[in-house]
């Protein structure tokens, strides 16, 4: 068998070029790709938080516990009808009639919005349980009930502090007891 190959210069160059191409291909960086497809839906939302009023600590502006959240505490201390007695140094105490005294403290409500074209919001509030006879819970002089939300404001601006004053009015014949209420505030975008 004749095993001789007849290679001229052009064939040699061609073979060498092919080999170089193969080598170059094998030497190239190995890559792999993938696709991650993300789906979501943006929803409008608003939030309500309670803040200490800038005048906190002065008379009528008690500090909130857990301020900056939507679940705060407001301690009005101990009070009694006789002698204008009250232990808290930050509450505003006064006799409002011959038979009632009132303890009040103010705080701020801040409602923020996101992804909404609503121009403002309305604010309402509700107490959690019926108060004892002779006890009235109010916000900005609006009496609250536990049977439904009572409107406080019709068009408050988002992102602004809205100062609200919580008042507890107690008749002078109310027995000694702890007066406790959870007051729910409801902001609704207009």
């Amino acid at each position: 068998m004749n095993c001789r190959f007849n290679l001229d210069g052009r064939k040699v160059l061609l073979i060498l070029s092919a080999m170089l191409c193969l080598l170059a291909a094998s030497a190239g960086a190995q890559t792999s790709s993938g696709q991650l497809t993300i789906t979501m839906s943006v929803q409008s939302s608003i939030s309500l938080v309670f803040q200490d009023n800038p005048s906190v600590g002065t008379t009528g502006f008690c500090p909130l516990t857990n301020a900056g959240t939507n679940n705060v505490g407001l301690d009005l201390g101990t009070a009694a009808f006789p002698g204008n007695f009250h232990t808290s140094t930050c509450v505003n105490y006064q006799h409002i009639t011959a038979a009632f005294y009132e303890v009040r403290s103010a705080f701020d409500v801040v409602v923020s919005k996101a992804n909404s074209s609503s121009p403002n919001y309305r604010l309402a509030a509700q107490i959690s349980t019926p108060p004892p006879n002779g006890v009235v819970w109010l916000v900005n002089n609006v009496t609250l009930t536990n049977t439904g939300f009572t409107a406080l404001d019709a068009a408050d601006n988002f992102g602004q502090r809205i100062t609200k004053t919580l008042q507890v009015q107690v008749r002078n014949n109310v027995p000694a007891q702890v007066l406790l209420e959870t007051i729910t505030f409801l902001a609704t975008a207009n």
Binding site: S33, Q35, M40, S41, S116, S117
Partner: peptide, 23 residues
């Protein structure tokens, strides 16, 4: 808000990200 620089609201938004790993 939508129309003021914000994203569309209430509609699905889909985006694809390409990843490449190189040895």
């Amino acid at each position: 808000a939508p129309g003021a620089g914000g994203p569309a609201v209430g509609a699905p938004i889909t985006t694809t990200i390409n990843f490449t790993a190189t040895a």
